[in-house]
Structure formats: C-alpha cells, structure tokens
Design a protein around this nucleic acid. Structure first.
Lengths: 233, 233
DNA sequence: TATAAAATACCCTGAAGAGGGTATTATTTG
DNA sequence: CAAATAATACCCTCTTCAGGGTATTTTATA
C-alpha cells in the first residue's frame, strides 16, 4: 500500500520507463466537462515530456475551435458531456481530421456508449476513469504507435450489451407498438390512447395484446420496466 | 479562450496570489474511487507548496488506515464511492478525528447526498467537479482558516431537495404502506401481496386505497413513479 | 390509562384490463 | 405482382382494480 502515500506518479515514474519507447512529441487534446479533471490531467501529464497538451475544453464546441487552430495527434475525451456529447465530438473530429486518434476516458463504460463510440466513431481506445495515470500513458503511447487500447472491462460490457441488443432485436416491435408503449408509460388508459391516436379502443387493445405477447409481460408496470431495460423508452 | 491552451493553472497561478494568504502547511488526504482523478489532483496540487498530500485512497478503508498513521488537516473526498461511500467515510473520520475538516468533491451535488454529508457528517465544504483548481484551492484555504465553502449551485440543490422532502414528509406513509408499495413496484397483484404478507386481500385493498389517496395517484404506474421521485423506493 | 395512529378486515359497484378469438385494409418488400 | 408485415377493428369472458363505505384489533404515545 506504499502507493497511497506521497506523489504516486513520482515513485512510479522512477520505477518504470515510459519515456524510453518513443521520444516523438505526442500532441494531445483533452475534453472533459469537469474542469478539475482537465486541470488534474494536465498537471499529471506535464511530468511526461513526450506528451504536450495542445488544447483542452469543457465542451465540444470550444475544443473543436481549438484544434482547428492547433493540430493534435490524439484526442482524449470524456463521453458523457453536456451539449455536445463524446460521440458527436468524436464523429466530428474523425470527419474533419481523419488522422487524429481518439481515446475515450469515461466514468461509466455502459455498453450503449461504448458501442456508439466504437461503432459510429471508430475510436482507438476506451479507458475508465478508475485507471491510473500509468495506464493512461500506456494507452496514449500504444494508440500513438498505431495500435489500440481497450480495457477488458470495457470490452466485457460491450459484449454483454451487444448480446442483450441481439435478444431485443429478435423481438420486433412495430413503430405503432412503440408509440403505444410510450403512451402507456405516461399512464394513459386504452381509451385515452385511442383518443390520442384517433383510432378505436379495440385497436389499442389489439396492439396492447400483441405487445404483451411479444415482450413476455402481462402488466403495464412490468412492460414499462422491460421497455426501460431494452432502451425502448 | 486563452485559458484553453497550455497549462492552465500555470498562467492562472501567476496572475493570482493564493499562496499569500497563509504559509502554514495544509496536510491533505484525498479519497476518490477514480485513480486518474487522484493522480490528477496530486499533480495539480503539487504546484501549491503550502499544501501537501499526506494520504490518498480509492476506497474508504484504505484511506482510514492511512490517516491513522499520518495526521491530516483536511480530507477531500468524493461522495459516490463503492464499498464505503463518502457519507460513511466522513462520519467515521469526524468521529475519530473531530479536528479534521472535510470537503466533498462530487460529480452530482444531488440534494440527497448533500443533505447527508452536511446533516449527518457536518462537513465544511462541498464542491462539484465542474470547478477548477483555483476554486478548489480557495475552498481548501477557506476551510483550513476555520471557514466553510459551499458552492451556490450545491446550496440551491440542497434547498430544493429539502423543500421536496418537506412536502413528502407531510404525506405520512406508514411502514406497512411502504412495504406494500415496494411489492406493487415488483408487479405483484393484490392477491400475491396478500399471500406474501399473510394478510387478507381486503386488507391489501384498504392499504392500496389509502396509499393512492395519500399520494394523489390512481394507478400502479403513477404511484411507482411518485415513489421513485420521493425516494421511497 | 386514555387517545391517537396503524393495521387489520369486509361489502359493494362499475370501469378497465388481460387473454382468447377472427378479420379487413394498407403498406412494404422480395 | 405476390407474399409478408403492419395497422386497423370487433366480439366475448373473467378477473382485477379503483373508489366509495364501515369497523375491529393492535400498537404507540401523550
């Protein structure tokens, strides 16, 4: 537990040798909606002379502006951010600057987000904030060298999520059915739904029946829970 | 937007004068379940010579162990942490070392947590991670000087929460009623609830009726939503 | 101990829902 | 164009539930 005392990265930097791998300067941009995280990362990365921070920003727009003026090699970005989320930012950066590598640094590692970041934006790395600075450096170096770095826990979450998604996609709810589910979620009765959609109560009853059958539920409550779990709502 | 470039705290430290206030050494402990945040904070705080980091930990137990060996003045702790949460940690620290001041550094600032930290553990400060390093330093100095530091947004959230709580406390649900709500939330029918609690269906119906009346709801779904909002579930 | 609050139980009514059908009319897709 | 899918609509039955009562016993609490 010697790590817990003093300046952790000092001791660890002395006992490791990150800086031997490549001495080319890596120009980094950091996006995180928490200023304290940016400040902290900057301070921590200052100790590694082969990494320079070219831009930081607490929101996507500011960061996009910055990197349009100053080129970067790698973007290190949070995923859940207000206004412009990590996914949109990554997409935009990949579109404008295809040569820029992107590493996500997120709290959650929720399957949905990971899938979006990897599937839509084709990022090169995904780290959880639980990781230490050493692992971050490792990831940056690996990605900069043309590789990838994905934490195993992240990949596990992703595969779990994809599996759940596959199960859900087997259950094919129609657009109308989803519409009706969302009205049921709001607490509407069959009559109210019928009035809202300008259709007969009988039709709503049929849809309702089909929905329950497809989802394997039999009350509004369990259905709504199912819908939340499967991201219908 | 000049802040976005380079090492932000460098420029700002030059243009401010944090270190003029008190030159007594402040011994700080940091608890955060994200190692990267700890690493970052340590690196950032290293630039302030009147603050020394005596202990860090990604969970409460490790940190308690550390500070039992090395005295501290201020504990800077995250609130939502696995195993031992910020509230428990703060309580324990305040109990064992009443002279230690505590500042919470949290993501959420959700009213419930703020209330617990302030009400139960009587902490001296509460910051959101959106804040920058300057504000953190300010808070540390203020608290160390015997004062308090609570961000206005945090206080706003708290008062909103206390107001909601007051409204809820006017609605007095009995223990049995809460029990029945939680069974309703699980999707149980009146019959199932009656069997589960070894009481008559009639009794369940009565409770149900009283619950709906008290909460102003009239379906299971709206009731369950109400219960979530008011933290009954 | 007196009183209030909580938990128990029953009755009745009408509306709504769950579950079982069948069937016609778009609309999409191979 | 033919076949499949989606959306529409109706019928019937039986159960459950919401909402309106009243009333007894147990448990706190003043």
């Amino acid at each position: 537990m010697e790590q817990l005392y003093g300046y952790r990265w000092n001791t660890s930097r002395n006992s490791h040798s990150y800086m031997n791998h490549s001495q080319t300067l890596i120009r980094l941009a950091i996006a995180d909606d928490h200023q304290i995280v940016i400040d902290g990362l900057c301070a921590a990365l200052k100790n590694f002379s082969h990494i320079s921070i070219s831009a930081t920003g607490t929101d996507g727009n500011a960061l996009l502006q910055s990197i349009s003026e100053k080129p970067i090699d790698i973007l290190l970005t949070d995923v859940m951010m207000p206004h412009i989320g990590g996914v949109e930012l990554a997409l935009e950066v990949k579109k404008k600057y295809p040569e820029v590598k992107i590493i996500a640094l997120s709290m959650s590692g929720s399957g949905t987000l990971v899938e979006e970041m990897m599937g839509k934006a084709a990022i090169e790395g995904y780290l959880l904030k639980h990781c230490g600075i050493e692992e971050l450096i490792l990831a940056i170096e690996k990605v900069h060298a043309g590789g990838q770095y994905f934490q195993t826990t992240v990949l596990d979450e992703l595969s779990k999520h994809l599996q759940l998604k596959k199960q859900t996609s087997d259950i094919r709810l129609t657009q109308r059915e989803k519409e009706i589910i969302s009205l049921m979620e709001k607490g509407c009765s069959n009559k109210e739904i019928a009035e809202g959609l300008f259709i007969s109560v009988r039709t709503v009853e049929t849809h309702r029946k089909n929905i329950f059958r497809k989802t394997g539920t039999n009350t509004v409550l369990t259905l709504v829970k199912w819908a939340y779990e499967h991201k219908i709502l």
